[in-house]
């Protein structure tokens, strides 16, 4: 019975993706349209385009790895700075009131318009791209951290103080832990912004990277290669989202239990 259930759910989960891919495959099979080459051609170009024979020379190493490196660097810097500043600002009501309108304004600026500005300061190199990604990612993390720290249970805070919890352990076990649901929300928003900015900064001005390569394919009308690049970017987004969830799931296990207990108690 339960085996049948399991099989059923696997079939259900895989059915639509398979149907969609099959539809794509067969409707374009004899396609002569220039912009929509047969999926077969795209799949066949994927390997020579991205994974050439000596792997060290392949585009996956020369283009995708630098892109991912910049993404991670900018994102992690934003995470550290955002949580750090967020804890500081969130702990002081005055500081919060003082900075909130300015931060809201910064958050509201669509991050890609910062590319031309940061290009003035940092040229078009790696540094500019990391700065752009960091700048775009920091606001959702910062504002959510502030919100999370502000919403901490005051009784918990007072308890920690009564028990003379040391400052560093209060910081990690009480403040950051307590604000972690909001921090995670901000970090998730920031991740999709980071991917957008990684691609955009390379499309706008670069000499390597995924975004740059894909635009080159498009400009030289190498359509199957362009499609393979779009698929690669899509896979990248999916994989990063999966990694994020793998980290988030255990980190917020306590919170899910807590929520469930609260709901059950009502």
């Amino acid at each position: 019975m339960s085996l049948r259930r399991a099989v059923q759910s696997v079939v259900l989960a895989l059915a639509l993706p398979l149907i969609l891919i099959a539809t794509w495959w067969f409707t374009t099979a004899n396609s002569t349209s220039f912009y929509f080459p047969p999926l077969k051609t795209i799949v066949e170009t994927f390997q020579p385009t991205w994974l050439e024979d000596p792997v060290s020379n392949s585009r996956i190493v020369t283009e995708a790895i630098p892109s991912l490196g910049r993404l991670m660097a900018g994102y992690l810097l934003a995470l550290v700075a955002g949580v750090g500043l967020g804890v500081a600002i969130g702990s002081s009501a005055k500081l919060r009131a003082f900075t909130e309108p300015v931060m809201e304004f910064f958050r509201a600026i669509p991050p890609p318009v910062l590319i031309p500005i940061l290009m003035l300061f940092a040229g078009i190199g790696t540094q500019m791209k990391i700065l752009v990604i960091m700048w775009g990612c920091i606001w959702p993390i910062l504002l959510n951290t502030v919100e999370g720290v502000r919403g901490l249970d005051e009784i918990l805070r007072d308890t920690a103080r009564c028990y003379r919890m040391r400052r560093t352990s209060a910081l990690f076990h009480l403040i950051i832990r307590g604000a972690s649901p909001q921090i995670v929300t901000g970090a998730r928003q920031a991740l999709s912004i980071a991917i957008i900015l990684m691609v955009i900064s390379e499309m706008f001005a670069a000499n390597n990277g995924l975004g740059f390569t894909i635009v080159q394919f498009q400009r030289s009308f190498a359509i199957p290669e362009m499609w393979s690049g779009i698929i690669l970017l899509g896979l990248l987004g999916v994989v990063l989202a999966l990694i994020f969830r793998a980290i988030e799931w255990p980190a917020l296990a306590w919170y899910r239990g807590y929520r469930q207990a609260q709901r059950g108690g009502e």
């Binding site: 639509l16 969609l20 957008i196 894909i214 635009v215 362009m226 690049g229 779009i230 987004g237 999916v238």
Partner: peptide, 20 residues
């Protein structure tokens, strides 16, 4: 029926569609 498809399509960065 649609859960996995949505989970896969959602994180695809929209800017990947720019060349297309």
């Amino acid at each position: 029926f649609t859960a996995t498809t949505i989970e896969f399509l959602r994180p695809i960065p929209s800017v990947a569609l720019i060349p297309l």
